[in-house]
């Protein structure tokens, strides 16, 4: 990345920061008047299929070497609190610790063109992980978020065998430190839940998309696939996009542009 873009990004960040402050001041007092009640506070009714949450990843904007989304996810969901068990091999541990989102770097076999993208649970409409789970612990919430009910997960890892995206992690070790909003314990499987705790409290955002914007890349757009006026549908209308392993017909909630 050269200096020019660096400073441009910096400038944009400042601008965004300022704009945020302004809009906070301007909008906050009026919020109760303009915001639909369902979005304004912690929800009191169960989630419905009025929404289907999803993401658009614009790979052309995803920067080489940037890990903002991964870091944000780690601290949002307490993944950075995991500790390598004493005596475990460094590299093996990387393949045993829970990872919800990872940066993937691809090179086109023909052109040699390099593409970066974040990869997480794709929140499939027809999720293989849910189909195979023997106890029904893997489930799809009404609003399309696929997650694991830890209370019934027996740790059979069949869902990990079934997921085509290596989206799921098994908790291989005793977990001593965890966040209130992100329970975690030895012997269960987990994966990205699109920051469900944020959504449930009326905050329409995910840590990864927020961090990406804060870095000035805007490679991740979060929103409602069912809202034609929403940011996600608007972005999808502008850019051609596809699903990873589209051939499997899973109708993923996470879409990619530029691959």
């Amino acid at each position: 990345m050269n200096h020019e873009t660096e400073s441009m990004n910096q400038g944009r960040r400042d601008f965004l920061g300022a704009a945020a402050g302004v809009s906070a001041a301007a909008v906050a007092p009026g919020v109760f008047l303009h915001t639909p009640v369902a979005n304004a506070a912690p929800r009191t009714d169960p989630v419905t299929d009025m929404h289907r949450w999803g993401l658009l990843v614009d790979t052309s904007k995803c920067a080489d070497g940037c890990t903002a989304c991964v870091d944000a996810c780690d601290s949002e969901n307490g993944l950075n609190l995991q500790a390598k068990p004493h005596g475990q091999d460094e590299l093996k541990w990387e393949n045993q610790r829970a990872v919800w989102i990872r940066k993937v770097k691809l090179q086109d076999n023909l052109t040699g063109h390099v593409t970066n993208l974040p990869l997480m649970c794709q929140h499939c409409e027809h999720p293989p992980c849910v189909d195979v789970c023997p106890t029904g612990a893997s489930f799809k919430r009404a609003d399309g978020i696929v997650m694991v009910d830890r209370h019934t997960c027996i740790g059979c890892r069949y869902c990990m065998m079934a997921c085509p995206y290596k989206a799921r992690s098994f908790i291989h070790e005793q977990v001593d430190h965890k966040l209130t909003r992100a329970p975690r314990g030895k012997g269960c499987v987990e994966s990205c839940n699109l920051c469900a705790h944020r959504l449930d409290n009326g905050d329409i955002s995910t840590a990864c998309a927020e961090a990406c914007s804060a870095e000035g890349h805007q490679a991740l757009i979060f929103g409602d696939l069912k809202d034609p006026m929403g940011p996600l549908r608007k972005a999808l209308a502008k850019t051609p996009s596809r699903q990873i392993r589209q051939d499997l017909g899973l109708n993923t909630g996470v879409r990619y542009a530029g691959i």
Binding site: E90, L91, K92, W93, E94, N95, V99, R102, K103, V104, K105, L106, Q107, D108, N109, L110, V114, T115, L119, P164, Y165, K166, I244, R245, I259
Partner: peptide, 19 residues
């Protein structure tokens, strides 16, 4: 697992994380 036909995966998460 073959996720990206036509591409070579040159990095997948942190080193040690396999893809």
């Amino acid at each position: 697992q073959e996720m990206f036909p036509g591409y070579n995966v040159i990095q997948f998460g942190a080193p040690g994380d396999i893809g």
